[in-house]
Design a protein around this nucleic acid. Structure first.
Lengths: 217, 217
DNA sequence: AAATAAAATTAGTCAAGCCTAATTTTATTT
DNA sequence: AAATAAAATTAGGCTTGACTAATTTTATTT
């Protein structure tokens, strides 16, 4: 079986895939808060275990086996998040770190039993799709609030950023998965967004904020 | 916070307390399957952290702090066992090892939330009492099936042996916590027990079996 | 009490997974 | 293309928690 650290690297690489950029040792190091030298060590280890392939030109890539493993870690993470929120009444911003630990519990049937117990949820509390037992993934949202045109009405589908700082800001703004937002205007100067949350008074948020909210139209 | 290894030592020492014997490095080593030399290292570490006190004459003893910490690990272990059995439909004999991992998840409120979610259970699926949040412990059963007189009716309250072999035997016999058993007769030759499970046909079990079942009358 | 056996301890080693510092390779500017 | 900057890599070290082997202490026999 794989160690905690190996699993964290796999998950990290899996996440970095979404960005569509070349996955470099430096990128992994930054994402994990580790030193690039340590990353190089682990790249060697994971390559030996045939979980990743590393090519200086192409960067790091998950092998089929690595991809499968990473997907299952993400599956476990997201299922536990649903559990923590729905069953144990945690708040949105508290569940990530705990799920980060729970996802590493090793048991062949645990994830599937949890899945069943939770009623086979499609999305986790952040709106991210939960991979199925076979590794298939429901479609993920890709449009962010920063992408839509002024005047557009949309619905919060997921969050791209799951840091506590962002989630607490959302709570403060009373924004949840499903909340309706209208983009009133984009400020040309710095791309700030003027929005109306659930039809309420206008508020201004940053471009960074807009890029962190995935939406449905 | 304490490491996985430290917690396992604490839990081990906690368990050894029940035997009423002096807790020696060798005893800990045997119980954990470690080398005595490693145990000596950890004893030093836990002593430095004031979780245990070690006296060559008296052996290892948990400090108040260590006792509290160990109790909370046991609490988490037993609560997770209830969860796995009741909510995820695991069998009696499958839950121990998974709970062994889950018990180390670090979050200040997790155990209490789980406790609430499970309806504040008093006993775990093996019949062991679940320590309360404050560290208090419900009374444990002490009478075994081997202790009662022929003719007596009793109820299975807990199991003293949690090995898979024993639990699977119980499953085969259709015995659970709460199952009613009547002791029909004791065979003087080898102290075998003739019993009736839930009023069904007589079956014979060994003395060892009888001593492993804790009962209520 | 001396001899022997067992337990405890010390000393030194090892792998995992991280680190820093130095070096080499690759990419970007000028 | 040369100079510079950035990224990748190597070399060597550290800590945790294990180990083995050797030694010392304690307990048990004779």
């Amino acid at each position: 079986m794989h160690t905690l650290s190996e699993e964290n690297y796999l998950k990290c690489i899996y996440r970095l895939q979404d960005k569509g950029q070349k996955i470099t040792p430096t990128a992994i190091a930054e994402s994990l808060g580790n030193n690039p030298a340590s990353v190089v060590d682990m790249i060697r280890k994971l390559t030996d275990k045939q979980l990743i392939a590393y090519d200086k030109k192409k960067g790091v890539d998950l092998t089929e086996q690595g991809q499968k493993h990473a997907t299952l870690i993400v599956r476990r993470h997201r299922l536990w998040e649903v559990f923590l929120l729905e069953k144990l009444d945690y708040h949105w911003d508290e569940i990530h770190d705990i799920a980060e630990e729970l996802e590493h519990i090793k048991d062949a049937t645990l994830a599937d039993r949890l899945d069943k117990f939770l009623g086979f949820p499609e999305y986790d509390p952040h709106g991210d799709p939960i991979p199925k037992a076979n590794g298939k993934m429901p479609k993920r949202y890709s449009t962010t609030l920063a992408d839509v045109k002024a005047g557009a009405h949309c619905r919060v589908a997921a969050v791209k950023d799951t840091t506590s700082a962002f989630l607490q800001y959302l709570i403060k703004l009373n924004i949840n998965i499903g909340t309706k937002i209208q983009l009133i205007e984009k400020i040309p100067f710095d791309s700030s967004l003027v929005i109306s949350i659930d039809g309420n008074e206008h508020k201004t948020v940053s471009q960074k904020f807009g890029e962190s909210l995935l939406i449905d139209m």
